[in-house]
């Protein structure tokens, strides 16, 4: 799970065979809204590439441009070595795209949906292929059930199954695990890793930090701009954030909460503290300037019931900080 690609994206020349997605200066505008702004990124073949960012940050728009569903206003790029501007149809034949909203036919049964996809992609013996996919997905007993009657987790499983049935080279998954329970999510990710091991490239957008950490590389996008990319460790290191964690010990839950809230309010206002986030009976305090952060927490270090320790910022700390920084610059 934690095996991460060593080389950060965007450095050095790679052979075309090694690159699944390479786009440069991609922009898309809806009316006056610049939804994707000068986006440049590279995804290597066989990689699981996480696409993170707040709602409305342009993740879906970028994915749609990659598979030719939207035409970029500016920029160029290739997907599986084919031009995203002119070879949309060829790209689609080799890409499995799982939409954010369930987009298979609700009034068709599970098996009929799979057969439809198989026929459309010209898979030989569509019935047999659909049956095989059912078994692979663990949906064997549900072949005759209408897709619309499946629960969220099963729908997601079916959608992924339909995507991989024609044997694509690249999977584009747009928030595939939204609203799915942890068990189903874990199984889903196990499958994604199995597919990557077979050589499939996977670009997956998500809001979940734990899922980001399951990716080989991640990109963080906000307001249409790519703010950070690389392995999780790289992104955290590049953030320049320093973090302390303080735990409240030896008090009842009510007093502990009171103490956390008080401390949080005082520290938020302090110079050198960029971010304060409570986690149960502990508090995450982060700042970009190590010395200023030390100075800010110094007055509280002697208080009773508080246990201080130097910590690593989490990915969430980094992303929230990135977004705030971006806000301030806007």
């Amino acid at each position: 799970m934690s095996e991460r690609a060593a080389a950060p994206a965007g450095t050095g020349e790679r052979s075309a065979a090694d690159v699944a997605i390479a786009v440069e200066g991609l922009s898309k505008r809806f009316g006056a809204n610049l939804v994707v702004d000068d986006l440049t990124m590279t995804v290597r073949r066989g990689q699981i590439y996480g696409f993170l960012g707040p709602n409305g940050s342009g993740k879906t728009t970028t994915i749609r441009m990659l598979c030719g569903l939207l035409t970029p206003d500016a920029g160029r790029g290739t997907c599986l070595g084919m031009d995203i501007l002119t070879q949309g149809r060829e790209i689609r034949a080799h890409v499995g795209y799982m939409t954010q909203r369930f987009s298979l036919y609700q009034d068709l049964s599970v098996k009929e949906n799979l057969e439809f996809v198989a026929r459309l992609y010209g898979v030989p013996k569509p019935e047999a292929a659909a049956q095989a996919a059912l078994e692979r997905l663990g949906l064997k007993g549900r072949g005759r059930q209408l897709a619309g009657e499946l629960s969220g987790g099963w729908k997601q499983r079916l959608a992924l199954g339909a995507c991989i049935l024609p044997g694509p080279d690249l999977l584009l998954l747009d928030e595939p695990t939204a609203g799915v329970d942890p068990q189903a999510r874990r199984e889903f990710w196990a499958q994604i890793h199995a597919l990557a091991a077979e050589g499939l490239t996977v670009l997956v957008s998500t809001h979940y930090m734990d899922e980001a950490e399951r990716c080989h590389e991640i990109a963080y996008i906000a307001y249409g701009r790519l703010l950070a990319q690389g392995t999780v460790a790289n992104v955290i290191a590049a953030s320049g954030l320093h973090t302390y964690t303080v735990d409240v010990k030896g008090e009842g839950p009510r007093e502990a909460s009171q103490r956390i809230t008080d401390l949080s309010q005082k520290l938020s206002a302090a110079l050198g503290v960029d971010m304060v986030a409570p986690f149960g009976t502990s508090l995450h305090i982060s700042g970009r300037d190590a010395a200023a952060l030390e100075a800010a927490i110094a007055p509280f270090r002697g208080e009773p019931h508080l246990v201080w320790r130097k910590d690593e910022p989490t990915l969430e700390d980094v992303f929230i900080d990135l977004m705030r920084g971006k806000d301030a610059r806007r």
């Binding site: 034949a93 890409v95 795209y97 939409t99 298979l104 459309l120 992609y121």
Partner: peptide, 9 residues
């Protein structure tokens, strides 16, 4: 469902 359909060849 159109989004899926369009994403197919």
């Amino acid at each position: 469902t159109m989004e899926s359909l369009l994403a197919m060849p």
